[in-house]
């Protein structure tokens, strides 16, 4: 594609830089304030000192791990299968996986709160017995939009049909094809989806808060009522950390024609 006139490109990059970097810069400055007029890392170190924050972080990381495993186990075979066998369902799959972007989390939470209060069967009781079992299945739903987009872009970039046929002709079973042929070829897309899922779990407050589970983001917001600096520090740290992970991945996975990280082909 021909490059648009230079001035328009620079105008939007400059605007974006100001709009996106100034709040982050302000947050960084705020989070480093210490005492009356000095600066220090005290707010960041609070994660090591405050047991409530530490427990919440452990809980959230466990949820994130479980969410990533279930999401990938569900979506990798499905997306591969649809691309190979049912390409016409692709649009439908795209339509279904886009739903969590527009379905209000507060409505999901309302439904779940009602289930939590009124469903008395053993399965529901077990489901709502801990944050891990209660939140993970629903976070998998929230992870669908970018997981699908990331995997779809990853599979578009490889010659799936040929790879699968070659492996099958050499006698590989379906699970071998999936695990040892397809997965290594789309690992950047898979890791990208995993990191975004981590970001999702570390940022989701609405459902957890309404169901009264104390996850990391809920605790961060809670802490913000009394010490804003700690909240700013920790939420900024989790945002920047996830972004750095994705950026490193985009360079590490730079082999191949396309860039797949962040859901963009």
């Amino acid at each position: 594609m021909r490059r648009p006139p230079r001035v328009w490109r620079w105008a939007i990059f400059a605007l974006a830089a100001v709009y996106f970097l100034v709040p982050l810069g302000a947050a960084a400055e705020f989070s480093l304030r210490q005492g009356e007029s000095g600066y220090g890392a005290a707010n960041y170190l609070e994660i090591a000192r405050d047991p409530a924050l530490r427990d919440a972080l452990t809980s959230s990381l466990r949820i994130a791990f479980a969410t990533i495993v279930i999401t990938l186990a569900l979506m990798v075979p499905t997306v591969v299968y649809v691309r190979l066998r049912l390409p016409r369902l692709g649009l439908l799959l795209e339509g279904v996986t886009v739903l969590p972007i527009v379905i209000p989390p507060v409505v999901m939470a309302a439904g779940m709160a009602f289930m939590q209060a009124n469903f008395t069967d053993a399965t529901s009781q077990w489901l709502f017995s801990s944050p891990l079992t209660a939140l993970t299945p629903f976070y998998v739903i929230l992870a669908l939009p970018f997981t699908y987009r990331s995997l779809d872009a990853g599979l578009r970039a490889i010659d799936l049909q040929t790879l699968v046929e070659a492996a099958r002709n050499l006698g590989a079973g379906w699970w071998t094809v999936l695990g040892r042929v397809i997965l290594p070829n789309i690992r950047t897309a898979v890791l990208g989806a995993a990191f975004l899922t981590l970001a999702l779990v570390l940022g989701e407050v609405v459902i957890a808060r309404i169901l009264l589970y104390v996850t990391f983001p809920v605790q961060v917001v809670e802490t913000g009522q009394t010490s804003a600096g700690v909240s700013v520090a920790l939420s900024l740290a989790s945002l920047v950390l996830t972004w750095v992970l994705l950026l490193v991945l985009s360079f590490a996975g730079g082999r191949g024609r396309r860039r797949l990280v962040g859901g963009i082909a």
Binding site: V22, L202, G203, V232, L236, S250, R259, V261
Partner: peptide, 22 residues
């Protein structure tokens, strides 16, 4: 592209704090 992914899906808590700070 990576920043878009993180910002679009992070869910808004860090953004809220960043905007208060700014």
């Amino acid at each position: 592209s990576t920043a878009s992914g993180v910002l679009a899906y992070f869910g808004g808590v860090p953004l809220a704090f960043a905007f208060i700070a700014a």
